[in-house]
Design a binder for these strands. Structure first.
Length: 320
DNA sequence: GAAGCGTGGTA
DNA sequence: TTACCAAGCTT
C-alpha cells in the first residue's frame, strides 16, 4: 500500500537528474551517492557532469592521479571523500560488488551508501537510511526519539517492496527532498497527508527530534601571500590526512584560538567545527620546506580548497 | 560513541 | 550576521 502509493507519486514527480538519465549504471550511482553525502543536489550536479565527462568509466577514474581527482573535487568539500573515492576506484576496477555486506568494506562506502548502491544500482532489498528517510519516517510515524536510526531502519525494512526496491529507495528520498522538506514541508501536496502522524499532530516540522548544536569556536591565523617579482605565488601541499588533506595552501601560522593583533586585511571562513579568521601578511621570499611557484593564471591547475581561494584572491586584490 | 571533516544556500 | 542545514564516513 505505502510502496505502491510512493512509487506512483515518484513516477509522476521525480526530477531528471544526471545520474538518473542512464538507468542502472553502477558507476553513476556510486559517484553520485558519494558526492551527495552531506551535500545538496544543486551543488553536486556540475561536479558530477564534469567527472563523468572527464572519466566516462571507472577505469578512467582509476587511471588518473589522486591530484587530478582532488583538482576536480576542489570546492565540493569533505576531501576525504575524494581520497577514498580514488582508493575505491582501484577496487571497483577489478570487480564491482552487488551486495550490501561487500560494498560496505570499500573505502568511503558506509552503511547508507552501501545500501543505496545495492538497492539503486542492483535492485537489492537493502535499507538505505539517510537524513531524508529519517525525516520522512519520523514524521509519518510520529517518532520523537533522539536516536531514530535503528527504529527507522526497522520500519524501512518492513516497507521495502519485493519489486522496484531501487526506485522505492530513491522515491522515499525524493519525497523528503521535494515534499517532506526540513522546513516548510508541502503537506498539502503530499500523498501521505491523511495517514501521517506528524501532520495529524499539527507539527510535522518538529520531527525528527534533534539535540541543540554547540556554538562553534573561532580560530585565528596569519596567512602569508608570498609573491615573487614576476607575480608567481608560493604554494605548498597540506599533509595527506586531516583537514583539507592533500590540498594545496598558502603557508600560515598554526590555527589556534589565540586572537590576532588587529590586522587591516582578514578573511573569514567557516568549517564544519570552527570559524577561521585569517589575517593576511605579504612577503616575497619563500618559506622553508617544499613548495612551488604558481602564476595566478595557473592557480586553476592546482587543488585549492575554497578557503585558500578566498585568501589568495583577497590578498591579490588588497595589494593593488 | 563522540569528534573531525567543507561548502554554499537560506531564513 | 549568525545559525542551520544537505542523499554520512572514519577514527
Amino acid at each position: 500500500m505505502f510502496s505502491e502509493k510512493l512509487l506512483t507519486w515518484y513516477d509522476l514527480s521525480q526530477r531528471r537528474l544526471p545520474w538518473r538519465i542512464q538507468k542502472k549504471n553502477p558507476y553513476y550511482t556510486w559517484l553520485s551517492e558519494v558526492m551527495l553525502q552531506q551535500t545538496t543536489v544543486a551543488t553536486v550536479i556540475p561536479y558530477f557532469n564534469r567527472f563523468t565527462q572527464k572519466w566516462p568509466e571507472i577505469q578512467n577514474l582509476a587511471a588518473a592521479s589522486l591530484d587530478e581527482v582532488l583538482i576536480e573535487w576542489q570546492g565540493l568539500g569533505y576531501y576525504s571523500r575524494a581520497r577514498n573515492l580514488y582508493k575505491c576506484a582501484q577496487h571497483l576496477t577489478k570487480s564491482f560488488p552487488q551486495e550490501e555486506h561487500e560494498l560496505i568494506n570499500l573505502p568511503g562506502i558506509g552503511p547508507y551508501t552501501a545500501a543505496a548502491i545495492a538497492s539503486i544500482a542492483f535492485n537489492k532489498k537493502a535499507a538505505a537510511v539517510d537524513g531524508n528517510v529519517i525525516r520522512v519516517l519520523c514524521r509519518y510515524y510520529g517518532l520523537d526519539t533522539l536516536n531514530p536510526y535503528e527504529p527507522v531502519r526497522a520500519k524501512l525494512l518492513k516497507l521495502l517492496p519485493e519489486a522496484r526496491c531501487g526506485d522505492f529507495t530513491e522515491a522515499l528520498m525524493e519525497l523528503g527532498a521535494l515534499i517532506c522538506r526540513p522546513k516548510n514541508p508541502s503537506c498539502e501536496s503530499c500523498p501521505f497527508q491523511k495517514t501521517c502522524k506528524g501532520y495529524e499532530m499539527g507539527k510535522p516540522e518538529s520531527f525528527p527530534n534533534k539535540p541543540p548544536k554547540k556554538k562553534l569556536p573561532t580560530r585565528y591565523t596569519t596567512a602569508f601571500i608570498i609573491q615573487r617579482e614576476d607575480g608567481a605565488i608560493w604554494l605548498r601541499r597540506r599533509p595527506s590526512q586531516g583537514l583539507l588533506g592533500g590540498m594545496m595552501e598558502v603557508p600560515s601560522t598554526p590555527w589556534t584560538e589565540e586572537k590576532n593583533s588587529e590586522e587591516k586585511l582578514t578573511v573569514k571562513h567557516t568549517f564544519t567545527h570552527f570559524h577561521l579568521n585569517a589575517a593576511l601578511c605579504y612577503a616575497d621570499k619563500p618559506m622553508e620546506g617544499e613548495g612551488i611557484w604558481v602564476q595566478p593564471h595557473d592557480l586553476k591547475k592546482h587543488a585549492l580548497p575554497t578557503v585558500m581561494k578566498k585568501i589568495i584572491s583577497t590578498g591579490l586584490k588588497g595589494r593593488e
